[in-house]
């Protein structure tokens, strides 16, 4: 029988870690698992299929936003109540999925973000990352009045209403911060809970210096323009 929760794993060339992540998720919860293979050129898809989970192979690389939205569309079409995003690179600890789900199931909020503000001290690239993170927290607080500390965390769980919203509209690149804005402005409730995150175990981070400058500008612009809608 189908579970009420779908764990969505967006994966782009994560052959080294995706298998282990799926095993870990299975150990900690009995949710259904969907891997969205974002046009990987390595064995990501085959490795995931070997773990007996559903795999969607995107014929082209869409980027994290497009891949996640494909997962959300699948969840909507199959009538799932909840969806959880877990990254394929091993940063997110599946042990905390139950913690994310608890406020959702209780109906307290519409989205729960796993936050590393109680974080691993030797988290790599912490300084630049923290400066950026602080800036987005500040901007969100300014524009919506709500403080969200780990705005860039991709470890999040959502309910059916937010699923429908995301199936309609989800930013194609760097979606994490922007969707918080999108949800808060439309009256959805968001809560953060502390989780432990690890430095990525395999693959490469998709964010370089030039990209992070673009990232800051693009996201800030999108947030300000969202206020005009």
């Amino acid at each position: 029988m189908q579970s009420s929760t779908l764990v969505i794993i967006p994966a782009y060339n994560e052959v080294a870690t995706v298998g282990q992540i799926i095993k870990n998720i299975k150990r900690w919860c009995d949710a259904d698992i969907l891997v969205v293979n974002d046009g990987s050129t390595d064995g990501t898809s085959a490795t995931a299929r070997a773990e007996k989970v559903t795999v969607i192979d995107l014929p082209c690389n869409l980027g994290i936003g497009g891949a996640m939205q494909a997962g959300y569309l699948y969840a909507c079409q199959h009538g799932y109540e909840f969806a959880v995003q877990v990254d394929a690179d091993g940063q997110h600890e599946p042990r905390f999925i139950a913690d994310l789900m608890q406020p959702l199931r209780a109906g307290e909020v519409d989205m729960v973000i796993g936050s590393r503000y109680v974080e691993n001290r030797n988290y790599r690239g912490a300084l630049a990352r923290r400066a950026g993170s602080w800036f987005f927290t500040f901007l969100l607080k300014l524009l919506t009045g709500q403080a969200i500390y780990d705005t860039t965390s991709g470890f999040r769980a959502i309910n059916r209403q937010v699923l429908a919203e995301f199936a309609r509209r989800y930013p194609p690149d760097y979606p994490e911060v922007e969707v918080i804005m999108q949800l808060l402005r439309r009256g959805y409730r968001i809560k953060e809970i502390p989780v432990v995150m690890y430095p990525r175990k395999g693959g490469h981070s998709s964010i370089t210096l030039l990209k992070s400058v673009y990232y800051m500008f693009k996201v800030s612009l999108a947030m300000v323009i969202d206020c005009l809608r």
Binding site: P171, P172, D173, Y214, F217, K218, L221, A222, I225
Partner: peptide, 10 residues
Amino acid sequence: LSEQHSLFWF
């Protein structure tokens, strides 16, 4: 116009 492409024009 997407935010992405508007950035240049801004």
